[in-house]
Amino acid sequence: GHYRIRINGREFEIRGISEEEIRHLEEALRNGADEKILKEIVDRLRG
Rank of each mutant, 00 (worst) to 15 (best):
G1H: 07
G1K: 07
G1S: 04
H2T: 08
H2G: 14
H2Y: 15
H2P: 06
H2S: 15
Y3Q: 02
R4T: 09
I5L: 04
I5C: 14
R6F: 15
I7Q: 00
I7R: 00
N8C: 11
N8P: 00
N8W: 08
N8I: 01
N8T: 01
N8G: 13
N8H: 05
G9V: 01
G9F: 01
G9K: 01
R10E: 15
E11C: 14
E11A: 03
E11K: 02
E11Y: 13
F12M: 03
F12T: 01
F12N: 00
F12V: 05
F12P: 00
E13H: 13
I14C: 03
I14N: 00
I14D: 00
I14P: 00
R15G: 03
R15I: 12
R15P: 07
R15V: 10
R15F: 13
R15M: 06
G16V: 08
G16M: 06
G16T: 05
G16I: 08
G16D: 09
G16Y: 09
G16L: 07
I17D: 02
I17W: 05
S18M: 04
S18V: 03
S18Y: 03
S18C: 04
E19L: 14
E19W: 11
E19K: 10
E19F: 12
E20P: 06
E20G: 08
E20S: 10
E20T: 09
E20D: 08
E21D: 14
E21W: 10
E21Q: 13
I22Y: 07
R23A: 13
R23Q: 13
R23G: 10
R23Y: 12
H24D: 12
H24T: 13
H24C: 12
H24N: 11
H24M: 14
L25D: 00
L25I: 14
L25T: 01
L25S: 00
E26D: 07
E26Y: 11
E26T: 07
E26Q: 08
E26C: 11
E26P: 00
E27W: 13
E27T: 12
E27S: 12
A28I: 13
A28V: 13
A28K: 07
L29A: 04
L29E: 03
L29K: 04
R30Y: 09
R30Q: 09
N31V: 08
N31R: 09
N31M: 12
G32F: 07
G32E: 04
G32D: 05
G32N: 08
G32Y: 08
A33S: 07
D34W: 15
D34E: 10
E35D: 12
E35T: 08
E35S: 11
E35Y: 14
E35G: 07
K36T: 11
K36H: 13
I37K: 09
I37V: 13
I37R: 08
L38C: 06
L38H: 01
K39S: 09
E40Q: 12
E40H: 08
E40V: 10
I41E: 02
I41A: 03
I41D: 00
V42C: 05
D43W: 02
D43C: 15
D43M: 12
R44Y: 12
R44M: 09
L45T: 03
L45G: 03
L45D: 02
R46E: 09
R46I: 15
R46W: 14
R46F: 15
R46C: 11
G47F: 08
G47D: 09
